[in-house]
Simulated scan of single mutants.
Amino acid sequence: MMSQSNSEYDPIHYSKKAIGPPPAHYTCYRCGKNGHYIKHCPMQMDKSVEAPKPIRTSKGIPQSFMVKAEPGTKGAMLTSTGEYAIPAIDAVIV
């Protein structure tokens, strides 16, 4: 009776270890490509290649508080219209 009541809590039922290839929707967060987990990323071995920085989006910030900017500007975010902008308060400081 005791072994049956504890069988549900056996670690094999809740192990999170990735087995096999990743699902089709999985994207490696280091290189941004599909087909491998981050543990097996080819960029992990090659330290000379810098990982691309993710593009920040300006979710939750009203358009009236944003000032248009160039894509390379420090703190530039992608707006819902597809343009780059920085918050107006940061534009005053810079």
Score class of each variant (00 low, 15 high):
Asp46Cys: 04
Pro23Leu: 07
Ile89Met: 14
Gln63Gly: 04
Tyr37Thr: 03
Cys41Ser: 02
Gln4Val: 06
Ser5Ala: 12
Phe65Gln: 13
Lys59Leu: 11
Ser3Ile: 14
Thr79Asp: 04
Tyr14Thr: 09
Pro22Met: 04
Val94Phe: 11
Tyr9Gly: 13
Thr57Trp: 02
Ser15Arg: 05
Ile38Asn: 07
Leu78Pro: 02
Ala85Gly: 02
Lys39Gly: 13
Glu8Ala: 15
Pro42Ile: 02
Gly60Met: 07
Pro11Cys: 01
Ser3Ala: 14
Lys33His: 14
Ala18His: 12
Tyr9Asn: 14
Cys41Thr: 00
Gly75Ile: 10
Thr57Cys: 09
Gly72Leu: 08
Pro62Ile: 03
Ala69His: 02
Thr57Pro: 05
Asn6Tyr: 10
Gly32Phe: 05
Cys31Ala: 13
Asn34Val: 10
Pro52Leu: 10
Ala91Thr: 01
Ala69Gly: 09
Gly32Cys: 07
Lys39Leu: 12
Ser64Asn: 08
Tyr26Asp: 06
Met45Gln: 14
Glu83Leu: 08
Ala69Met: 00
Ile86Glu: 11
Ser64Leu: 00
Ala85Gln: 03
Ala51Ile: 02
Gly72Phe: 12
Ile61Tyr: 00
Pro22Cys: 03
Tyr37Gly: 12
Ile38Thr: 06
Met66His: 01
Cys31Tyr: 10
Asn6Val: 05
Ser5Trp: 04
Pro42Arg: 03
Pro62Ser: 10
Pro21Lys: 15
His40Ser: 13
Pro87Tyr: 01
Val49Tyr: 06
His36Lys: 09
Ala18Met: 15
Ser80Asn: 10
Ser58Val: 06
Gly72Val: 01
Lys17Phe: 09
Ile19Tyr: 13
Gly60Asp: 05
Ile55Arg: 07
Ile55His: 00
Cys31Val: 06
Ser48Pro: 01
His36Tyr: 06
Asp10Gln: 12
Tyr29Met: 15
Lys17Gln: 14
Leu78Glu: 03
Pro87Gly: 02
Ile61Lys: 00
Ser7His: 05
Cys28Tyr: 00
Gly32Asp: 08
Lys47Trp: 03
Lys17Cys: 05
Ile38Arg: 13
Pro11Lys: 00
Met45Ser: 14
Ser48Ala: 10
Ile38Met: 07
Phe65Thr: 10
Ala24Tyr: 02
Glu8Tyr: 15
